[in-house]
Design a binder for these strands. Structure first.
Lengths: 212, 212
DNA sequence: AGCTTCCTCGATCGAGCGTTCGATATATTA
DNA sequence: TAATATATCGAACGCTCGATCGAGGAAGCT
């Protein structure tokens, strides 16, 4: 009865966000189809039926996890790209952004890469659209990189894009944050590995150079 | 009553193999936990209970799919590697073998990369061992490549290994065999992309190369 | 013929699933 | 105080799942 000045919609949003985080963890641990709403209710400390006040179905829950995370990753990336001119630096920004977000939201990112097929109908369509957006941003950067460097055509752009995402997304299968390889280092490794193969020489880091 | 000279164990093995193929397809389509034994029985044209004559449990079925495929990929690879001396050619053989097997057994390979976590206990342990074997073969080849080239240390060997597997395994998420990119071409693209970043210049193909 | 082995099946069980519904407690507004 | 909106809960429903079991058909052997 003290400080309830703001509308309850804030508390509502906060609890929903907390539920989404817990759900993402459980989906990441056990897989979407193997996880039950009861698992989530137990970890959240609320009743089974009480959860349905915050989402309409298990699938909507899965959708919200993927939708919010993808939007966040895309928005953050576009923000970081704004001040960047060099094509190679754009690519470097994308890799660091993706890997960084990955390591800070392992559960959600695992759900995104692992449970894409678990969505159906309209949910699936909307996530597909977001994924294409993200993929397009990446592919356009690669096109730019190719244009402004002496890069040959080692691989078609779509193959290169998929290869890059493969390198980055596979992280969830082996990497544990806080290991002996820090995240920034890991991102830089992947960036150089890919760029070296894509344009035929190691990617430029903070200090740069040119070749012919 | 005509040609039943051989012991029935051959027919038994043939039917088991057919069931494993069907199960791999269904697991690949719907995911392990979302797929039911009844789905498999329907596609196989046999009764639900009849299936249990060929395997003890749904999880054993999943195990057999992964176990047989991994062994086959490893055996084939070791055979192909036998006559190869050059380190780079070994790497090229590995990539082509992996991608080739992938495209010919999409269902099984998808199950391997996607349903590893669905195994538990002893089953999980044994598949983990096979994966480590495979990964070790790859990492040793990379070590050799690094030793015999002017490769700098763009990335630690384990990071490079994981990146390579990421590039290759991500195929299942976007590639459709029989598309406008033939499998051998795709494998060569991935090989050059990776090698170029790993050793600092495009990987040697059958013919020429570049120096850096 | 009888006996045994390999194989297949329908019927069924208990458990767990996602979801619904009516009751209820609390806070806000009139 | 009464009325309303917000939030939570226990109990239950209908359904699907993996797995089991005993019956029985077909083939080979003695």
């Amino acid at each position: 009865m003290a400080d309830t000045a703001s509308p309850t919609s804030t508390e509502h949003e906060e609890k929903l966000e907390r539920l989404l985080t817990i759900a993402a963890e459980i989906f990441a641990e056990k897989g979407y189809h193997n996880a039950s709403i009861r698992d989530i209710s137990k970890r959240a400390g609320t009743s089974l039926s009480g959860l349905y006040y915050y989402f309409a179905s298990k699938e909507e829950l899965l959708f919200m996890i993927q939708d919010r995370s993808l939007r966040k990753v895309l928005t953050t990336l576009r923000g970081k790209l704004e001040g960047v001119d060099s094509a190679e630096e754009k690519l470097r920004t994308l890799v660091h952004n993706h890997v960084g977000f990955f390591s800070e939201n392992m559960a959600a990112m695992r759900v995104i890469t692992h449970e894409y097929d678990s969505l159906e109908g309209e949910y699936r369509t909307r996530i597909t659209e977001l994924r294409r957006e993200y993929s397009d941003v990446c592919q356009e950067i690669l096109r730019e990189v190719r244009r402004f460097t002496s890069a040959g055509d080692v691989a078609p752009l779509n193959v290169a894009t998929s290869a890059l995402f493969g390198m980055m997304n596979w992280i969830y299968a082996w990497y544990t944050p806080g290991s002996n390889v820090p995240v920034e280092r890991l991102a830089e490794h992947l960036y150089r590995l890919f760029t070296g193969g894509f344009i035929g020489r190691p990617g430029k880091s903070s200090r740069g150079r040119r070749a012919g």
